[in-house]
Nucleic acid binder design. Structure first.
Lengths: 346, 346
DNA sequence: TATCCTGATGTAACCGGTTACATAAAAGCT
DNA sequence: AGCTTTTATGTAACCGGTTACATCAGGATA
C-alpha cells in the first residue's frame, strides 16, 4: 500500500478504498447510505490512518457550521454556568455545538464578539439583555442569523426574548420587605448604566417604594460590580449609616452573600437586626447560616427553552418566539418582620 | 447601481468597485497594502452593504482558524472562570479566539470534544489534567495541534504542562495542620477515580500522614462531587463522628465553604473547635467569617502563561515547554493550633 | 420475460476567500 | 534621461469536502 501523504484527505482515502470521494463522505456522514462491506472497508482505512475530516472544508462546502453562539457578561457568576450548561446539553443532543464568549460587561467587547460570530456564520446567537446598538440587530437579520435575548424581556416584537421579568421579580422582593414592615430598604445592585437587568431591578425597587409612598433615599442605594468584596464593602457602608436600613435587597446573590458576611463580621444579626434578600437562588444561599431568602431564577429552564428555540430556528426555520418564564421568591432564614432596631453606639 | 444579490461576496464587491477580488481581500485584511483612495472606495461599499466576510471560506482557504480550544471540567467553579478570563484576554490581544468546552468531569464527553476540536482544526488546545487515553495525545500530534496540560503537572516530557504541583501544595496544607498540632485531620476531596488533581491531593495527604507516623483513617476521608450542599453534608458527617477530626483539609474552596457553613449550623466554632483549610483561594474565602485559610492557586498567572505558550506555538512554531508555577498557603482565621476538644454530648 | 422501482455509487461543479506569482506604474537614484 | 526599485494591483489556481444529478445493478411486480 502506498504510504500516506502528509495530509490524508477523503480524496486519498477514496483512491485507497477504490471508491469515489462522495462514497467516503457518505460513509462518514451518512453511513446508512453506503453498502455494509463498502462502509467497513472505508472505516477501516479511516481508523488505520487516524483520519479526522477537515471541518474547515466541511463547513465551507456545506454552508453549515453547526455552532450556536452564546454571549454572557461574565463567566465568574455561577448562575450563568447553570444557564450555559442547560443550553449546552440540549444543543449536544441535537448535534450542535455551543461557542461561549465572555463580554465582561463591555458594550464594545460585545460588539466585536457579535461581528466575529457573524463572520463565523454561527447558526444562532444567544444574547444577554436586550439593550444594544440597533445596528447589531439589523446586521443579524441581514445575515439571517436567528437570535434571542435572554436575562431580560424585550419591549420589541422584532427582538425575541426568552426570559423572566426582572421588574416583576424585583418588585416582588421589594414588596415582600415592605410587607414585613421594613421602610428603610437598602438596594445593592449592578452598574445600571451598562447592565439593563440591574437597571430594571433598580427601577422596580423605586417604583414599589413610590407605590407604598416610601420616599426614595439615594443614600440607601449602592451600584457596583458584582464582586463579593466590593459588595461586602458596600453593605458595610450601608449598615453603618447614621440611619441604616433595616433590610437589604441585593440584585444578585453574590452581593447578598457579601452583605451577609459583612453583617456577620460587624456582629449585626441577620435577620434580627437586618433582613436580606438576594437574587438568583444559587446553591450556596441554601447552605450559609442563616440560609438566604432569594429570588429563584429558573436558569436551567430558561437555558433549555432558549436552546430549543434556536434549534428549531437553525434546523427547521421556525421563528423564535418570545417567552416569559416565572421566578419565585424563596423565603428562608435571612428575612423576618421588622422589630425595633436597637440603637448601636457610634 | 446594480441591486445587491442575496449574498454579497468579495467577488461582487470587487466588481462594484472596479478592482479584483484580491484587492478587496487585501483592503479588509491588510489595508496598508492598498492605495488609500482604492481602500476608501472599497470600505465605503463594504459599509453600505453591511458586508461581513464569510469566515467559513476564509478559514478554509487560509487554512487558519485563529481559534484555541480550552476544555475545562466544569464551568460552575469560578476558579476556572479566572483562569479562562486570563487566557481569553491574552489571546484577544494576539488576535486569536478562545473556544470553551465543558467536559463535566466525563472522560467520554472529553474524548468527543477533543475529536470535535481536531475536526475544527483549532490552532492549539488547553487541557485540564494529564490523565487521559494516550491515543488522544497521539491524535493531537498526528494533526500537529500544539497542546498543553494545565491544573496538573505531567510526568512525561512528551506531554507538556503548565501547572502548579498539586501534591506539593496539598502536602504543604496537610503538613501545616500537623504542625499546628492536629493529628485527626479529615480530608474532603473530589472523586479521585475521575479527577487526577483530586487523586494527587489525596495521595499527598496520605503520604504526609505517613511521614509523620499518623495512621491513615479512611473514615476521615470523603470523596464526592464539588457541590456545596454535598460538601456540607460530608462535613456534617465527619464532624459528628464519635471521634471527629480536629481539622479539615478540603481539596477545593467550594468544599471548604460547605464545611464552614455546616460547622456554623452545628455551632461548631471555627477555628476553636475545628480548623479548616481550603484550596484555590477564591475571593469569597476572604469575606466569610472567619476568613478561610486556603492554598492560593495562581489561576490568572497560569492562564497567562498557558496562553503565551500556545500563541508562540500557533504563530511561531515555538514548542510548548513545561512550567511549574508556585502556590502559596495563605493562613487566615480558620486555622489555629489544636486545643483540647471539649467532649460533646452524643 | 419485460418493465419499473429502489439502493448504491460516481461525476463534477461548487462553496468564497486567500495568496503566489506576475505585471505595470510610480518613485527614487545616478 | 535612463535604469532600478518599490508599490499597487490582477490573475487564477487552490484549499477539502458536499451533494445534485446521473447511472447502473439488482430486486420486485405484472
Amino acid at each position: 500500500m502506498k504510504d500516506a501523504p502528509k495530509s490524508v484527505t477523503i480524496r486519498w482515502l477514496a483512491h485507497q478504498a477504490g471508491v469515489s470521494v462522495a462514497t467516503v463522505s457518505r460513509a462518514l456522514r451518512h453511513p446508512e447510505t453506503v453498502a455494509p462491506q463498502t462502509r467497513e472497508r472505508i472505516l477501516k482505512l479511516v481508523n488505520r490512518h487516524q483520519f479526522v475530516p477537515d471541518g474547515r472544508a466541511a463547513t465551507f462546502s456545506s454552508k453549515r457550521t453547526g455552532v450556536i453562539g452564546l454571549i454572557i457578561p461574565t463567566i465568574s457568576n455561577s448562575i450563568y454556568a447553570e444557564f450555559t450548561e442547560a443550553i449546552q446539553s440540549r444543543l449536544q443532543a441535537a448535534g450542535l455545538s455551543l461557542l461561549i464568549a465572555n463580554a465582561n460587561y463591555s458594550a464594545e467587547a460585545e460588539r466585536d464578539i457579535i461581528r466575529k460570530l457573524i463572520e463565523s456564520r454561527v447558526e444562532g446567537l444567544i444574547l444577554t439583555g436586550y439593550k444594544r446598538d440597533a445596528a447589531l440587530y439589523d446586521l443579524l437579520r441581514h445575515y439571517r442569523i436567528p437570535f434571542v435575548v435572554t436575562w431580560s424581556t424585550s419591549p420589541k416584537a422584532s427582538i425575541p426574548s426568552i426570559s423572566f421579568d426582572n421588574r416583576a421579580a424585583a418588585a416582588e422582593a421589594t414588596e415582600m420587605l415592605i410587607k414585613l414592615g421594613h421602610q428603610r430598604i437598602g438596594l445593592i445592585c449592578g452598574i445600571t448604566g451598562v447592565n439593563d437587568r440591574a437597571a430594571q431591578r433598580f427601577e422596580a425597587y423605586r417604583s414599589v417604594l413610590a407605590r407604598y409612598k416610601i420616599p426614595f433615599d439615594a443614600e440607601l442605594v449602592s451600584e457596583q460590580p458584582f464582586e463579593i468584596e466590593v459588595a461586602a464593602d458596600a453593605a458595610t457602608r450601608l449598615v453603618t449609616l447614621t440611619n441604616p436600613p433595616t433590610a437589604l435587597f441585593c440584585a444578585n446573590d453574590i452581593q447578598a452573600l457579601g452583605a451577609l458576611f459583612a453583617c456577620q463580621r460587624l456582629k449585626i444579626r441577620v435577620p434580627k437586626d437586618i433582613s436580606i434578600i438576594g437574587f438568583d437562588d444559587l446553591p450556596i444561599v441554601r447552605v450559609v447560616s442563616p440560609p438566604l431568602s432569594s429570588v429563584h431564577v429558573p436558569a436551567r429552564r430558561m437555558g433549555h427553552a432558549t436552546a430549543d428555540a434556536l434549534i428549531g430556528a437553525a434546523r427547521k426555520n421556525i421563528p423564535v418566539k418570545s417567552q416569559i418564564i416565572g421566578t419565585e421568591l424563596i423565603m428562608r432564614g435571612s428575612t423576618m418582620p421588622l422589630v425595633p432596631a436597637r440603637t448601636r453606639p457610634p
